[in-house]
Design a binder for these strands. Sequence first.
DNA 1: CGGACAATTGATCTACCTCAAAATTGGTGG
DNA 2: CCACCAATTTTGAGGTAGATCAATTGTCCG
Lengths: 244, 244
Amino acid sequence: MAQNTDTALVRRMESFFPLTDQERRALAALPVIVRRHAAKQDIVQEGDRPTQCCLILEGVACRYKILGGGRRQIFSFHIAGDIPDLESLHLRVMDHSLAAVTPLTAGFIRHEQVRELTAHHSRLGAAFWRETLIDAAIFRQWMVGMGRKEALGRIAHLLCEMYVKSQAVGLTDGQSCPLPITQVEFADALGLTPVHVNRVLQDLRRMGLVVLTRSTLTVLDWEGLVRASEFEPLYLHQEPREVT
Amino acid sequence: MAQNTDTALVRRMESFFPLTDQERRALAALPVIVRRHAAKQDIVQEGDRPTQCCLILEGVACRYKILGGGRRQIFSFHIAGDIPDLESLHLRVMDHSLAAVTPLTAGFIRHEQVRELTAHHSRLGAAFWRETLIDAAIFRQWMVGMGRKEALGRIAHLLCEMYVKSQAVGLTDGQSCPLPITQVEFADALGLTPVHVNRVLQDLRRMGLVVLTRSTLTVLDWEGLVRASEFEPLYLHQEPREVT
DNA sequence: CGGACAATTGATCTACCTCAAAATTGGTGG
DNA sequence: CCACCAATTTTGAGGTAGATCAATTGTCCG
């Protein structure tokens, strides 16, 4: 398992720039505690003051906030290699919660270890910072959807995004990727009702763009899906690897 | 003017932790080029690869993206002391644009200078990082509004937020703060139509919560506004100053 | 095999949009 | 200093995407 945690982090960092041996060794030396979480279980809650952050190793997690009246807004979905609560490194109090969507394996790293690492390896610090900036870019893109797109484009866009993110960490298989997210969760992420999500997903199927099972997304017509969603992957900042 | 730029940055940093003399000197030594922008003028555009970032000294700026069909989504408004494109430090290509909302005075600092600074002063680096994390927290809060609140709560929330942010940089006067933002801009920020924004603002006035002129917000009933908007300022992370 | 959760369907309702025009406002040039 | 222009704000009437409420069906898993 220790090897898994290393490769996840190392691969993630190397998508920014090639690591030196020293940097690779420093990452591998990070003490990581691996823990499993049941589906729907909170990992960190709004109001907490975490002393560690959480590297997703397997499964899907989401960040969310609950309002009065049972309304919920999901801000992001996270897959293997993501560190969804990295921001807790510099924001003492959590302003939202982090939960497992599916059964989850996660590695926990103490803040002090991360601070130590970034202090001594400024390029790794920059890479971590960059991760949080990409998170923010994704938030902005979701805002575009919720503010200025109709339900169909909004849902299609999320499917594109999840597919591309899965691809980047090698989770795609042919034209399929894992997507174990319920329609209720889609609704809470997109600012819609489960009922409406259901109807629009049927439209997407009828248009021959995708097949969605309970746990898998298959993209039948990528071009069509991109067009329907106005998807432009620039905001994910998956630049070709170059030396800095 | 050099003094203005210094105080803006220094004050902003000190809201995180008390600076050492050394840190204060390093900030003051940053070469800053001051420039004025007319209202509605772009400062940085989507697709640009900036080599500097922009410190707002006076006026209001916004970040936005344009979609086909003339739809626009505004992501944030920025006032004195903000560095709205700080993220360009680690994301090579701009995935959105930055524009002046009002006539604007801004100071520009070269990336290399900022990198130099953060490399030698890791606490300042952390403070800059933190700024971008708070931006992201505000994005999340706007998502909550667009996804799960009706227009009245959404608008009221933005008014609360702008008031509190103004207060933090000493721009409030009694129960008023500058808010030179048109209803069209509100609409593009909130995912609404200008027509609907107009009607809801009238409701807020009729409820006796606020007075809004073209350039100034006056809060008549803060409690009422907070209740109507479900405003909880935790997400702004304006913690009491403490030593790190 | 049962029980809970997830997906689906149908009927009705409403917050917000669209389109169009009028009334205000503020800045600018003469 | 005033008159005018362009941008904003405001008003009205009708339309629609998506919400709400309430079942029903399907599916996974112990």
